[in-house]
C-alpha cells in the first residue's frame, strides 16, 4: 500500500464515498471483540423495551467503518493523530440478511502548518445523518 503525501493533498478535495454493510452478525462479532455487550446492540426485545425502534449498531462500529475511509486514503493507519465524531442518529439494524448500510464520505478541510491535514467525514444510513462533527487529523509525510 502506498502512502499519501502532504504535497499531494489539496484543500477541498473529496474522498470518494464508500458503503459498508452492517448485519446482526457484525454487531455480535463487534460486541465480542470490543467488550461492549449492551443488549441494545443485539437484543431486539430489550432495545424496544427502552424505546428504540429496533436493535441499533454500536456507535463505535460506525466510527470504525468511517475511519477506514481515512486509513485507506492515507495508506497508513498510524497517520491518524486525532479522530472524533458525534453520534447524531442510530443505525437501525433489522433482523434480516441484508441488515443496514452505512455510506461514508470525506472532504479535506485544511492543510495545517504542522504537516497535518484535517478531514471532515459524513456518514448516512437509511437517509439519516448518523455522524455529525466527524473529523480526523492525519500526519502525512
Amino acid at each position: 500500500m502506498s502512502r499519501l503525501k502532504y504535497d499531494d493533498v489539496e484543500t477541498g478535495a473529496t474522498i470518494p464515498e464508500r458503503t459498508f454493510p452492517v448485519r446482526r452478525l457484525d454487531l455480535v462479532r463487534y460486541a465480542g471483540a470490543s467488550g461492549d455487550f449492551n443488549p441494545i446492540h443485539w437484543n431486539e426485545r430489550f432495545a424496544k423495551s427502552v424505546g428504540l425502534p429496533d436493535v441499533i449498531a454500536h456507535g463505535m462500529f460506525t466510527m470504525a467503518e468511517a475511519g477506514r475511509l481515512i486509513t485507506d486514503w492515507t495508506g497508513d493507519p498510524g497517520s491518524v493523530v486525532d479522530y472524533s465524531v458525534r453520534f447524531s442518529a442510530p443505525v437501525v439494524v433489522p433482523d434480516d440478511d441484508q441488515g443496514a448500510e452505512i455510506t461514508v464520505g470525506g472532504k479535506v478541510k485544511s492543510k495545517n502548518d504542522d504537516g497535518t491535514v484535517t478531514v471532515m467525514l459524513t456518514a448516512r444510513s437509511a437517509g439519516a445523518k448518523v455522524l455529525a462533527k466527524a473529523s480526523a487529523v492525519v500526519r502525512l509525510a
Binding site: M1, R3, F20, D26, R29, Y30, G32, A33, S34, M60, F61, M63, A64, E65, G67, R68, I70, T71, D72, D76, P77, G78, V80, Y83, A136
Partner: peptide, 29 residues
Amino acid sequence: EAIDDLNPVYLDRASAKAMGHPDVIAPPT
C-alpha cells in the same frame, strides 16, 4: 476482523515494519 478491516498493517508484522512501525498497530478506534 470484527470491523472487517483487514489492513495488513494490523495483521502482518512485515507490512507494519515496512511502514516504519515496530510491530503491527491497532486500528484507530
